[in-house]
Computed example of a mutant assay.
Amino acid sequence: MKRFTLTILALAFSAGAQAAGDNVEMNLVTSQSVGQSIGSIKISETDKGLEFAPDLKALPPGEHGFHIHANGSCQPAIKEGKASAAEAAGGHFDPEKTGKHEGPDGKGHLGDLPALIVDKDGKATTPVYAPRLKKFADIEGKALMIHVGGDNMSDHPKPLGGGGARYACGVIK
């Protein structure tokens, strides 16, 4: 009986010692609804910061803006009098209220992630790292967003890196 109890305690301890993380389901978004799943992104704590490992399909090839947004919703909402895709996610995660988009290594939004790269077949599988984000708990309850266009990691010539419309979204649980 003692061995059984010790084994159970050891298993419980090792399960609790694992790094926190989540597998976030990503869905296409429109100004009318949250659509079909295009895959998932696994988030893990690493010594390089949080790792975002995509397993996505059906995306336009090229570079896409990739960010954590402030609210844990992918629902459409009204912006400037019009329905807008995933607008309920709010703006980029910016707990320090910097108001700046400077990329994952800058001193701006904490939600700025490296660009997501999609291959010619519409798949994204290359992990990216957020060096300023160390703990999964810091982003729980937020939204993960993929934008239509790329990201120049600046607010010029267009705000928020110029990524444009919201294309796919998932809630970090």
Rank of each mutant, 00 (worst) to 15 (best):
A89G: 08
L110Q: 05
G90E: 14
T46F: 06
Q32V: 10
I43E: 04
G35H: 07
G39W: 07
E80V: 00
H69K: 02
A20S: 09
A83C: 03
P95L: 12
Q75C: 00
T30I: 08
G111R: 05
G72H: 07
M26K: 01
A70M: 11
G108W: 01
F66P: 12
E80W: 01
N23T: 14
C74N: 08
G90T: 12
E25H: 09
G39D: 10
G65K: 03
K97W: 09
Q32H: 14
S37H: 09
P54D: 12
L59D: 12
S73R: 04
A19W: 11
E25N: 13
H101D: 14
A77D: 13
G62S: 02
K100V: 15
A70W: 08
I41H: 06
P60W: 04
N27D: 04
F66T: 11
S37F: 05
G35I: 07
L50C: 10
D22M: 04
G90K: 10
P95S: 13
T46I: 05
N27V: 02
G90S: 14
A85W: 00
E87H: 03
F66V: 09
L59W: 09
I43V: 12
P104D: 03
V29P: 08
H64V: 10
N23F: 05
S73I: 03
A86N: 01
C74K: 04
Q36P: 15
G108K: 06
A53M: 00
H109I: 04
V34Y: 07
G91K: 05
A89Y: 05
H64F: 12
E102G: 12
G108E: 07
P60L: 02
T98K: 11
E87D: 08
L28P: 05
G106V: 15
E45L: 05
K97I: 08
P60M: 06
H109Y: 08
G81R: 01
L59Q: 07
N23M: 11
I43Y: 03
E63M: 10
Q36T: 14
A86K: 00
K100F: 13
A83W: 06
G103P: 11
D105Q: 14
T30P: 14
G99N: 15
K107N: 15
E45K: 04
Q36I: 11
A77K: 05
E102W: 06
G49K: 05
G21P: 01
L113P: 03
L56N: 11
G62F: 04
A58N: 15
E80A: 01
I41S: 07
H101N: 15
A85G: 10
G90N: 13
S44I: 00
E80Q: 02
G65L: 06
H67W: 02
